[in-house]
Write a protein that binds this DNA or RNA. Structure first.
Lengths: 201, 201
DNA sequence: ATGCTCGATGCATTAATATATATCAAAAAT
DNA sequence: ATTTTTGATATATATTAATGCATCGAGCAT
């Protein structure tokens, strides 16, 4: 298979993984069979443009034809625009943990009517999903998760939730501070749809 | 056919026309049958990625997947980078006239050993091909062309050539002055391959 | 008027994608 | 330890891009 095709295939796969979607989940949304997605990502097929567009759509990507002379500039734009999304947060473990957090939160039915800490927790989590989390932050996320689960099983009260929440806030602040150029973009960037239906193909 | 595909098709066609290539010429270079190129440009086929890449290659384009959030920035980059190439010079008549000039020049066999004005003429023409020529400049080009042909038929001497050359120089200067931002790029931008084999499919 | 190039179209054939469905081993979650 | 999920793979079929070739009318030039 041609080099360029594999390049695009890699981009597709990377985007899918970052979005926390399984091949099957992507399959449903894009209307492309999972088997075919597998072949595409492996670069074993010369896919049609419609397939590429269908997949790109779901992955918030756009198929573009850019002049060769503009490629470097475009690359730098793309890098700076989706850099944190791509590089810093590409650690699979971190992504997984974020999903886990989201799911345990979804498993608590008193989020809306329960203590307000839970809602704040939810909001905090949503913000974190947009931040360039590195692998070093994994532990903090795990702690928050176990705190949440402890509360879910009623093994602890709202105090622990509040403490975990505070931890997440400090985490958020420490990260948001180190990259201001990124912070400017954060309002424009479409939020990940990590919220709905994560990783269940 | 999907909207996005037609969009890409339009881009391909536009790039081809601007480069002064016929479908048949593009066909030879890209290894794609002319009939198929026709269908592609009309948006009546769901082309494969390999076809798209093959065509884009010849047209100095790159197939890219850009994040939706970065699309506006990328568009502005592309516009400013290939703006003159795209907008100002897209007048078909101007392109035709440039090709005509080039061909009449090629029809003169004493370019290399003849009067030095011819060589300068050639060089000047080459520079003009990289400039954002508008429709208003058409007359000047036609004048230059007729002057060249008159010399070819030995109906005039080198004086007329020199005068036409001078006209082209002033034309060049007047254009180059009004856009400095563009002038900076002009060294980096790959020259059009209008030089070799123009419009003979 | 003649000839040439252009893009579009038709047709037959080939080759490959796309799809539906099912299965498998490995990783992950319970 | 058991169940679920995930990605890769297999088979069979339908759809269609891709190719080669021929042709057509329109525009342009000689």
């Amino acid at each position: 298979m041609a080099y360029e095709i594999e390049e695009i295939a890699k981009t597709l796969q990377s985007a899918r993984v970052i979005k926390g979607l399984s091949q099957r989940a992507l399959s449903e949304r894009a209307g492309v069979p999972q088997a075919h997605i597998s072949k595409i990502e492996r670069g074993t097929v010369d896919l049609r443009l419609s397939s590429l567009i269908a997949l790109a759509r779901v992955l918030d990507l756009e198929v573009a034809l850019v002049p060769r002379s503009a490629v470097p500039a475009v690359q730098s734009i793309v890098r700076s625009s989706s850099g944190p999304t791509r590089s810093a947060r590409s650690t699979p473990a971190v992504i997984k943990e974020l999903q886990r957090l989201h799911q345990t939160l979804a498993g608590i039915d008193q989020v809306t009517n329960g203590p307000k800490e839970l809602l704040q927790f939810q909001r905090q989590l949503r913000e974190l999903q947009h931040l360039p989390l590195a692998h070093e932050h994994l532990a903090a996320l795990k702690n928050a998760n176990s705190a949440l689960e402890a509360f879910k099983k009623q093994q602890s009260g709202t105090e622990d939730i509040r403490r975990a929440l505070s931890n997440l806030q400090t985490l958020r602040n420490s990260i948001a501070h180190q990259s201001d150029s990124w912070a400017a973009n954060t309002t424009l960037r479409p939020a990940y749809t990590l919220d709905d239906e994560v990783g269940n193909g």
